[in-house]
Write a protein that binds this DNA or RNA. Structure first.
Length: 812
DNA sequence: TTCTGAGTGCTTTTT
DNA sequence: GCACTCAGAA
């Protein structure tokens, strides 16, 4: 706030006096000169751009929407655009607002811009995530929303603990109204930019018998007292400031001469409002996104934002990037056909210039008996590829849900195959890291009650709930933070002598460290804190298996602090940037969810678990119906388009879900792939070929029955180990409990619905006739309207016209 | 205060 | 089927 409008006015004297007025293109203006320059000799950074990309880069003034399909050079366009704006002198680095969703994306963008413009990228102070940028704004204007500029940012864990306290204080049944549920609600309200007074009566009513609004209000009040805010507040407070303080808003509108938003399809309503406010004075907004890759609807992303862009920003230039530079034509065709089943798209068709070559592989679809066999089969494929010189870093297994990962990990451990799991519990979420950070937070901010609660009895000091209750009550009575309350309490006789002494000791230590903040380096102080508090000692004495790892993590934490100037700077970073670069250089297969794969690409992509219920996920279908299905389909699209050279899909006939075995139906998405881009791997190629072999020969075959048809093919070390284990009766024997055991399969062919793909691919004709009345398990009774192979078009009495497979219906 | 057993509920996840 | 949470006993 201090460095307000002065500096950049000088830098860009041509800026109109009224910041709300749209800049007028002038014949002698920079844009015109840029155009002229382009005709003569295009700058180096433009080289290699195709016509559409170039249009997206050069259309600098006015709103632009870039619809960038997967692999069409989206990041390239964004970074080049920034380089172009800077090179043409339209703005200085500090006048460009460039927003991403993840820190990773921000880092990558910065690095790539740096490659074009060198060190001046450091001047891009407004390149970052929505949240990081909001924090920056808020630190300057915190007092406008009742916070001090030193406010702390709560993470999900703190948030839930705080809500829990509030729910308890209200005397609500914590089982019926859980803190987690309310945290979810809060999030959804904040995602939509709603303050307590703005939530609809219905929604306020929905939680805890109408206490929803009150709880929200109480929560916000508590945050103010704690001088803290949650992630949603970062945006919400900014919006409030922008709305209520026109001078502040104007200053930012004036500052941000150009705005760029990455992954626009992922913006939620609050982010959209934020952006709209800033864009009011200045329409130079470029949003880049792909409606087909919108996969975060469940967390508040509004595809509508992208679909509505042209209405929101009149005169917007829409550029479609459809030329794909990543995948083979088979992969693109598969992805395009699949996504074409979605309604409500802006519509793009990916194409490639790559000439179809002999060795291009079709998208492969393979069946497996169960998830174990799936993992084994994929493991073998990976080893085969590795044997042909492909590196593991170029392979990824993308799953729908993280429970699927385990099977692969187990298998790869057996095989001795290097892998890394991406996502999952992150560094900062580990208990020891959170504890250490809580200590630091207590030192840095006496009002951080949540941190204090966390460490006051960690390591165990004999301060029980009883003592804490007294402190809490006192703090509430006096309206002071816990640490202050505790400090006052130890002067009195209200506590038991022992508790009083221990508490005084803890407070003494904190005070001591606090006094040293200015005098010694923050890393040194951190070490002292962990040491003197007895925290490291606690883990050293811990005999459990994970204790050494935790000590390592603490060391790593201190090491990572070195990059920061101060403790405060470090804490700020850690609350916003919770990921830590995994600096693994080792060659390893990546295992991750489809969600976390967005934005990445690999030569070989393995997509297991394409079964109804898993993918598309049953819950998504149940909870959000058609919209849910379409989002699942987009997820499938994202998965397919991650692959450069080969994509291999698996589905299993049986899967254990919530502990019990279920037979599975192949995913409907398989049927939506174009037959001529897909190669269905037959039974002989798979272990038991369940479901793909319509002739029935493969059914029930047990790969351990006799050693034959596979022997030649499966001689990898892992396979041999598996056989050995089988021979000695270990491991595989216990896997199939209950009556779905391997023995049951051995009994011979079984009729399971696993034939869907097989039939739709191989079989022609159906023994039903048009006009017949049939019954379907899910849709009830209906009349057959049309027959196409084994697919029937049925007019159901209750659920209207549907296409179903003949194997799912019977004559009524 | 800490250990133990019963009970529950289970996508996706960034900031 | 497993992992996590919470109530009650030592």
């Amino acid at each position: 706030m201090a460095n307000s409008s002065g500096p950049h006015n000088r830098e860009v004297p041509a800026h109109p006096a009224d910041p709300l007025a749209a800049p007028q293109p002038r014949a002698d203006g920079i844009a015109a000169r840029a155009m002229a320059a382009r005709q003569t000799n295009a700058p180096a950074y433009m080289e290699g751009l195709n016509a559409e990309q170039r249009l997206a880069v050069e259309t600098i003034n006015g709103p632009v929407l870039v619809l960038a399909g997967a692999g069409t050079g989206k990041t390239r366009v964004l970074t080049t655009r920034i380089a172009h704006i800077l090179a043409m002198g339209h703005a200085t680095a500090g006048q460009i607002l460039s927003v991403t969703f993840t820190n990773k994306a921000a880092r990558e963008m910065k690095a790539r811009i740096g490659a074009y413009i060198g060190d001046s990228v450091e001047g891009m102070t407004w390149l970052g995530t929505f949240h990081a940028i909001c924090v920056k704004i808020l630190r300057h204007h915190a007092e406008l929303v009742g916070l001090k500029s030193s406010f702390s940012i709560l993470d999900a864990d703190d948030q839930v603990r705080l809500i829990k306290q509030i729910i308890q204080a209200e005397g609500l049944d914590e089982k019926r109204w859980t803190a987690k549920t309310f945290a979810g609600l809060l999030d959804s309200w904040k995602n939509r930019g709603l303050t307590p007074s703005q939530i609809s009566a219905g929604e306020a009513q929905g939680f805890a018998n109408g206490l929803g609004r009150k709880l929200y209000e109480t929560y916000q009040e508590r945050l103010k007292i704690l001088n803290a805010c949650d992630f949603g507040d970062l945006l919400l407070h900014c919006i409030t400031i922008f709305k209520e303080h026109d001078d502040v808003l104007k200053r930012f509108q004036h500052r941000f001469r150009y705005m760029l938003v990455d992954e626009y399809q992922d913006t939620n309503i609050a982010q959209y409002m934020w952006l709209r406010l800033l864009a009011q004075g200045n329409p130079n907004v470029a949003c880049v996104g792909d409606d087909d890759q919108s996969i975060y609807g469940w967390r508040g992303a509004e595809v509508d934002n992208i679909l509505r862009f042209e209405q929101d920003f009149p005169g917007a230039v829409v550029v479609r990037l459809e030329r794909n530079y990543r995948s083979t034509s088979y992969i693109l065709s598969a992805a395009s056909h699949l996504i074409a089943h979605n309604q409500g798209r802006l519509g793009k068709t990916l194409f490639t210039d790559q000439i179809e070559s002999e060795d291009e592989e079709k998208v492969q679809v393979t069946s497996a008996w169960d998830s174990q066999e799936e993992a084994r089969s994929i493991g073998d494929e990976i080893e085969a590829l590795q044997g042909h010189g492909h590196c593991l870093n170029e392979m990824a297994i993308l799953v729908r849900a993280s429970f699927q990962m385990r099977e692969f990990e187990d298998r790869f451990v057996t095989l001795g195959l290097n892998y890394r799991v991406i996502g999952g519990p992150r560094f900062y979420e580990r208990m020891e890291i959170r504890d250490a950070l809580a200590y630091f937070r207590c030192v840095m901010q006496t009002s951080d009650d949540l941190a204090f609660e966390r460490i006051v009895n960690t390591p165990k000091r004999g301060l029980g709930e009883a003592t804490l209750k007294i402190v809490h009550a006192y703090a509430r009575k006096r309206s002071v933070p816990l640490m202050i309350a505790a400090a006052e309490l130890v002067q009195t006789n209200e506590l038991r002598p022992k508790a009083r002494a221990v508490l005084a000791d803890v407070l003494g230590m904190l005070e001591n460290w606090r006094n040293r903040v200015e005098t010694i380096s923050h890393t040194e102080l951190a070490e002292i804190i962990l040491d003197e508090s007895g925290y490291t000692q606690m883990w050293r004495q811990d005999r459990s298996a994970e204790a050494p790892g935790r000590l390592d993590n603490l060391k790593e934490l201190i090491r990572s602090m070195e990059e920061f100037e101060s403790m405060a700077g470090f804490l700020e970073h850690i609350s916003l940037v919770m990921d830590k670069d995994s600096n693994a250089v080792e060659d390893a297969v990546s295992i991750m969810t489809l969600h976390s794969a967005k934005g990445l690409e690999f030569d070989s992509v393995f997509l297991p678990g394409w079964e109804e219920g898993v993918f598309p996920n049953q819950r998504a279908l149940d909870e959000t119906g058609q919209a849910g299905l379409e989002e699942e389909r987009r997820l499938a699209y994202v998965g397919l388009t991650r692959g450069r050279k080969r994509v291999k899909i698996w589905f299993t006939s049986n899967r254990r879900i919530h502990g019990s075995w279920q037979s599975c139906i192949p995913s409907r998405f398989l049927d939506e792939l174009p037959a001529d881009s897909v190669e269905v791997v037959e039974a002989s190629n798979s272990y038991s070929g369940y479901g793909l072999n319509s002739a029935g020969g493969g059914y029930g075959a047990n790969r351990f029955d006799n050693s034959d048809p596979f022997q030649s093919k499966y001689s990898t070390p892992g396979w041999q180990r598996a056989r050995k284990a089988q021979a000695s009766g270990q491991q595989y024997g216990r896997m199939h409990g209950g009556n779905q055991s391997r023995r049951a399969k051995k009994a011979g062919p079984m009729t399971i619905e696993g034939e869907l793909v097989a039939k739709s691919v191989t079989e022609a004709g159906s023994d039903f006739a048009v006009g017949e009345r049939i019954f379907h398990m899910k849709f009830g009774y209906g009349l057959i309207g049309d027959i196409e192979g084994n697919k029937l078009t049925v007019d159901f009495e209750k659920s209207g016209q549907k296409k179903v497979l003949d194997s799912f219906v019977e004559r009524a």
